[in-house]
């Protein structure tokens, strides 16, 4: 028999988790769990986290990082002003998850716990150097997202831990970012491949501290240091973009499956990076032109 517990407080969840053997399933929005009756069949206890008070809310934590509670929905992230201002990349990525209905139910904690290679939020979280806060009777420990995700459906979460929140360091200065996704259609689709990028933008056309990550082209989300090296401290040009795109294609370890082919995935990560960077390039050109006009008017 499957028991379902909806708990209001974090300690209650932790207490049960530390007492229980396996066969306990944690669920918040249920968008990954409910379509899989097989996963439920072997479960004895299902804990509904959606009402746990400590897992809610988006705010700055004591160290000045953005704290997103694990049970915060994708739509809350998309709409939240703090995310839009300080972690826009995550807002972009979450807005491409599923449909409105899915975004209203699915949570950031669930997206992490499910550890799908195709999860849209993960490349953004990796670029933003986000950390996962894991709560257990031993307290809270932090893991970078790239260390938390181990493989398809596999994470570093111990059986008695639960994802409490995600923390994103706040970075100041002018930033550029994009999330691009190739899906089987435009709406309500799972990524065949995705690319996230963020960087600091400088008035002279340079990008610094670029971060590039890709989804659905390896067993886990992967960052692309080779592309980052191409972009770092360089003035963005179409030639630079081409070089960075080639580095993405090179880094992809894609496979064939029912959604796409390995060769297309390898190709398209380069295409997606090109699209995103070309738009940023045009945006920066535009800004430079406007600035030049302003200067001319002043002189």
């Amino acid at each position: 028999m499957l028991r379902i517990l909806r708990l209001p407080a974090l300690d209650q969840v932790i207490e049960i988790l530390s007492a229980q053997e396996s066969e306990t399933l944690l669920m918040a929005g249920g968008t990954d769990i409910l379509p899989r009756p097989a996963a439920l069949a072997s479960t004895r206890l299902l804990i509904d986290l959606s009402q746990v008070a400590e897992l809610q809310g988006i705010a700055l934590d004591a160290e000045g990082r953005i704290r997103i509670g694990a049970a915060v929905t994708h739509q809350e992230i998309v709409d939240h002003p703090l995310i839009q201002r300080k972690a826009q990349l995550l807002s972009m990525a979450c807005s491409s998850i599923g449909s409105v209905q899915i975004r209203n139910l699915g949570t950031i904690g669930g997206n992490l716990a499910n550890a799908s290679p195709a999860a849209d939020s993960l490349p953004a979280l990796v670029c933003l150097a986000a950390e996962v806060a894991l709560a257990s009777p031993r307290g809270i420990r932090f893991l970078p997202v790239s260390a938390f995700i181990l493989g398809p459906g596999r994470t570093a979460r111990a059986a008695d831990e639960l994802i409490e929140s995600v923390r994103i360091p706040v970075v100041t200065g002018r930033r550029v970012a994009f999330f691009k996704k190739a899906g089987q259609r435009r709406g309500m689709c799972c990524a065949k491949a995705s690319v996230a990028m963020c960087a600091h933008r400088h008035g002279d056309g340079r990008l610094t501290k670029p971060r590039v990550a890709m989804g659905a082209v390896a067993a886990t989300v992967i960052s692309v240091p080779a592309a980052e090296r191409v972009l770092a401290d360089r003035v963005l040009t179409m030639a630079v973009i081409e070089e960075a795109a080639a580095a993405c294609c090179e880094a992809a370890q894609a496979i064939d499956d029912i959604r796409s082919t390995a060769s297309y995935r390898r190709h398209v990560v380069g295409a997606l990076l090109t699209e995103g960077l070309a738009e940023i390039y045009d945006h920066m050109q535009d800004l430079a032109r406007r600035q030049a006009r302003r200067r001319r008017r002043r002189s």
Binding site: R185, R186, G187, C190
Partner: peptide, 10 residues
């Protein structure tokens, strides 16, 4: 989820 129909955006 795998038999892909066009969505309203398509």
């Amino acid at each position: 989820d795998t038999y892909i129909l066009p969505s309203s955006k398509d």
